[in-house]
Structure formats: C-alpha cells, structure tokens
Computed example of a mutant assay.
Amino acid sequence: MKYFVLVATLLAVAVAMPFDIFEDEEGEQYYAVPVSREKRQTKWGATNTGFGVSHQGTILNSNNHQLDGSAYASKNWGSHGIKPDQFGGQLDYSHKPSGSSAFVGADRIPGYGTDVSAGLKQNLYQNKNFGVDVTGQYGRHFGGPGGTGKPQSGVFLNAHGTFKVERYKP
C-alpha cells in the first residue's frame, strides 16, 4: 500500500509539471523545469508530555498547480529509546484554475498501527458570493492490536456563501 501511494504521488507530480523542450545547434534536446524558491517552515517544541517537530512547505508552485507537503514526529518523555512515538505526513495538491484539490496522508504509532487517508474536492460552481463543491474522502486503519479496520469513506456536497447583512430601516 505504501509503495502504491509513493508511486502515485511521484507520477502525479511528474504529470503536473510543465516541461519546456529546447534544442541546441547539434540537435540535442533538453527540458527546462520551472524553479521557484518557496517558504518552508520548521517548528519544534516541548511540553510536559514530550517533544515534537514538524516541517511544512511548498514543493511545487506553478501558474496552475501547487503541491504542499508536511511531516511531523513526536516523542513522549517517559518512553524508552530514541525512535519517535508518533509520526506522519501529508501531501496536498491544488489545481488553481478549477479550485479542485486532493490530499493523501498517513499517521503511524508504532505498536498501534497506521491511519491512512485520502480525499478529493471538485468545485462545481463558484462566483463572487457563492460556491458549491463535492468532496470524497477515504480513511482506513491498518495493523495494531485491533487489526486492520474497515474502510471509512464518504461523499459530501458542500455549499458556501457570503451574505451581506444590513440593518432594516422602515
């Protein structure tokens, strides 16, 4: 399952990247990949229960596509060893012109299993004050003392709008 998610993610990034092909005087072809420096953010902190670190940033940002990623790990003070007690990450993809998006993520607690989730959102209608979209989500727990759980999934229709409130003047 983890290899499928990795391959699907890499394939999605490769397909989404706009390549420009150039040819030199000898007929040799090259492709140019747009490069942009994006802000990345690393956070860490300690509480009375443990220590945690997270990192997030934009992996790809072009005129039409954006791919963001995040990862985290945490360690409880009372646990033994140096391995993290919980870790995970998520990739978020956005298609800017359509407002559509997708995500895939996983959270793992060694000894208790892994939670995997994925989702898609398709914008059906959008104007200045009102929008409608459809969302599909999937999640499943793998491994741990309770074993692999049943898949949890759903499809949702969402509507959102901005309304102007004015005071009534008789």
Score class of each variant (00 low, 15 high):
Y30W: 12
G113E: 03
F19P: 00
Q86L: 06
L11A: 06
Q29K: 12
K2W: 13
V155K: 03
Y93S: 09
L157N: 02
S70A: 04
Y125F: 12
S100R: 03
K169L: 11
N63H: 09
K169Y: 00
Q126I: 04
S153I: 12
V132A: 14
V116M: 13
L157W: 05
A46G: 13
I109G: 04
K2C: 08
G50T: 00
G81Q: 01
L11V: 14
G78D: 15
G89S: 07
S101Y: 01
D107M: 06
I109C: 04
F103W: 03
I82A: 02
Y30S: 14
H80T: 15
N63P: 07
N158Q: 12
S70D: 02
G131I: 06
I21C: 07
Q137D: 14
R40Q: 15
Y31G: 09
E28R: 09
I82C: 04
V15T: 13
E166H: 05
T47C: 01
I59E: 00
E23I: 10
Y112D: 13
L124Y: 09
G111R: 07
V13P: 00
V33G: 08
P110R: 04
K96N: 14
I59K: 02
Y138Q: 02
M1Y: 00
V33H: 10
E26W: 11
Q122K: 13
K164E: 08
A102E: 06
F4T: 13
Q86W: 04
T162V: 11
S101K: 03
Y168I: 15
G143E: 11
L67R: 02
Y93A: 04
H160E: 11
A12D: 00
R108V: 14
M17D: 05
G131S: 15
T9Y: 05
V13Y: 04
K39S: 14
Q152P: 08
L67P: 00
A46E: 14
D68N: 10
K96W: 12
F156V: 12
